[in-house]
Amino acid sequence: MDLSIAALLAQDGITNGAIYALLALAIVLVFTVTRVIWIPSGEFLSYGTLTLAGLQLGKAPGTVGLLVALAIVAGIVEVASSWRRGELARLPWRLLLWVGIPLAIALVLARAAPLHWPFPLQVMLTLAAVTAMGPLQYRIVYQPLADASVLVLLIVSVAVHFVLTGLGLWFFGAEGSRTPAFSDASLQAGAVVFSAQSLLVVLASLLLIGVLYLFFGTTLYGKALRATAVNRIGARLVGISPSFAGTLTFALAALLCAFSGVLIGPITTVYYDSGFLVSLKGFVGAIIGGLVSYPLAAAGALLVGLLESFSSFWASAFKEVIVFTLIIPVLLWRSLAAHHHEEDE
């Protein structure tokens, strides 16, 4: 291996690592605020890529049907819970939120598809459509289980993963999609060639992470989510409702996954079920961060990306094995290093 190959592998690893980092951050965010181990994060990545691919082909993506279906289910859940609690007066407003907005996005998506909007608008529309599914998923599945144990939430997450994969096959079909590269340009620095594509992926990830950093560090809503993660009871006592925090969290997490779906589109062909493997790699990163630390999770995801790219050079048949075996020493290290917290579940 000479320098140029090493540089190429590193570049590849960092590019993939940046995408895994977004997923790792989404998984950490969801876990700290809602205690849900979010297995179905990968499906949101697949939906992101497949939605954008559909828009670029000029045909309505399966997201339209998916949004309509989720909106209908959310509407039924909302009517039932309002009825049970005798809060029918608030129902119209809630229906507007849970059914009206998703249906509006689905309508725009269906109408916009044949019009071949400019690329940035297609990306925005993709992000909006997939982000909307995050709160819908929370409203339908996790909000009614807000008081369940972490184990129950994990089991439910596995089920949701299978359901969403199935829905993905139903609405998007079995064919994979790949989106065109953002740019074919490349930069030469000595013996090393950087592709503009890789730089864009890394920069976009950094930009999104920066925006989230500002959101959590400076805005009241961002701080409210942090507060919920730090002290659930304290958060309720200042009036931050768990369902509010959960809805916002799942919107942000879905946005992160959709964004990584857009970024991964030109790198690899994405099928309805491709997201799972990618999200598992994000999950390894999140575990390195102990499911609580954002910087460690991002660094861990980067490590996963690098390890994957270098092992694909040396032992390509074992690349997944090597990546997932990483979790064993990490868990050992974490369990030895962890000072035991009092059990609060």
């Binding site: 009241l220 701080k223 409210a224 942090r226 507060a227 730090v230 002290n231 304290g234 958060a235 200042v238 009036g239 931050i240």
Partner: peptide, 16 residues
């Protein structure tokens, strides 16, 4: 309290 957040953040969240 929100132990890992600043005093002023704790207070501002009180007015959430």
């Amino acid at each position: 309290l929100f132990a890992t957040m600043s005093v002023v953040d704790n207070l501002r969240l009180g007015a959430f």
